[in-house]
């Protein structure tokens, strides 16, 4: 029987990259593998699924109904993966991203889980962009039949172009992979309950005399256009995340002149600036 893995996350969270790296590595290690990306019509912004199978025998059908491993990158992945859970499924999720409210909906279906603070760890020690590679580490820790070195090799090949431009990307990715494996190996259900984060209040309103600056995490995709458009460099990325998990901008209100450039350039309606006269 093949090992069946389903991965789900926001488009742009790197779900497909993780699936591809595993599939390619399995193939190279003499296994058969099958990887089917499945997403909606949008390029980014929808829930993106990846069907992955690894087997010693040829794999003829790319889809499946129940998975041995389910990997959830975000809250919106939960409804999408629910039907793939069985009593033997290992559920891997980012407990620094997924909210308790979402986990509540599948609690009864989970027997075996691995909670990984992937985004929090990546943000703190590496870069938020490698959170997916932390989760990759968690997955491959359970794929013992494939040599770890092979995963490293594929990972570096995947980012070869980017590494040429920014050499530090190599260490960020390798660091994330190792961190992920370490979390998985040390994981103990007794110490880490099946839980996520509580919905936290993000400071959204900033104001000074005559100027009010507001941000809307429920709309912000973290594109950064506002930051580069600010004439006084009053904006920068913050540690707070928008709904996709990407960093959100924050204002240094003292520097804000209330010109509204950031509001006008925002494709998502995630910033509001008001200036009273």
């Amino acid at each position: 029987m093949p090992t069946k893995i389903i991965l789900a996350g926001e488009g742009g969270q790197g779900v497909q990259t993780v699936a591809k790296i595993i599939a390619v590595t399995a193939q190279r290690s003499g296994k058969n593998s099958s990887y089917l990306p499945a997403f909606g019509v949008e390029q980014r912004g929808g829930v993106s699924l990846a069907y992955l199978q690894i087997s010693s025998k040829p794999i003829t059908y790319p889809r499946f109904a129940k998975a041995d491993m389910v990997v959830a990158f975000c809250d919106r992945a939960i409804p999408a993966i629910k039907d793939f859970l069985s009593k033997d499924t290992l559920f891997i999720y980012d407990n620094s991203v997924i909210k308790n409210k979402s986990l509540e909906k599948i609690k009864n279906l989970i027997n075996n889980y691995l909670a990984m603070p992937a985004l929090a760890l990546a943000k703190e020690k590496l870069s938020s962009k490698v959170a997916n590679v932390v989760l990759l580490g968690g997955i491959i820790a359970h794929l013992k039949e494939i040599d770890y070195q092979e995963f490293e090799k594929t990972l570096l090949e995947e980012f070869a172009d980017k590494i040429i431009k920014k050499p530090e990307i190599k260490d960020l990715n390798l660091g994330a992979l190792k961190a992920g494996i370490e979390i998985a190996e040390k994981f103990n259900k007794e110490e880490t309950p099946f839980s996520g984060i509580e919905a936290t209040e993000i400071k959204t309103n900033f104001s000074k005399e005559k100027i009010s600056w507001q941000r809307f995490p429920e709309y912000c995709k973290g594109c950064g256009l506002c930051i580069v458009r600010c004439p006084t460099k009053a904006l920068q990325f913050s540690r707070d995340s928008g709904f996709l998990g990407n960093p959100m901008p924050i204002v240094t209100i003292e520097k804000c002149i209330g010109c509204g450039n950031c509001m006008q350039i925002c494709p998502d309606g995630a910033i509001k600036v008001e200036k009273s006269t």
Binding site: G12, G40, E42, Q43, R44, G45, G46, T204, N205, Q214, F216, E218, Y219, K221, G222, C223, G224, L225, F243, L244, N246, M263, C266, P267, D268, G269, A270, I271, K272
Partner: peptide, 24 residues
């Protein structure tokens, strides 16, 4: 809080599905 969305935007379908930084 009052949003920064145009009045004629359908709030039910927001956030919209365009990519981050999309000019469209």
């Amino acid at each position: 809080p009052e949003t920064a969305l145009p009045k004629s935007w359908n709030k039910e379908s927001k956030p919209h599905k365009f990519c981050p930084g999309c000019g469209q």
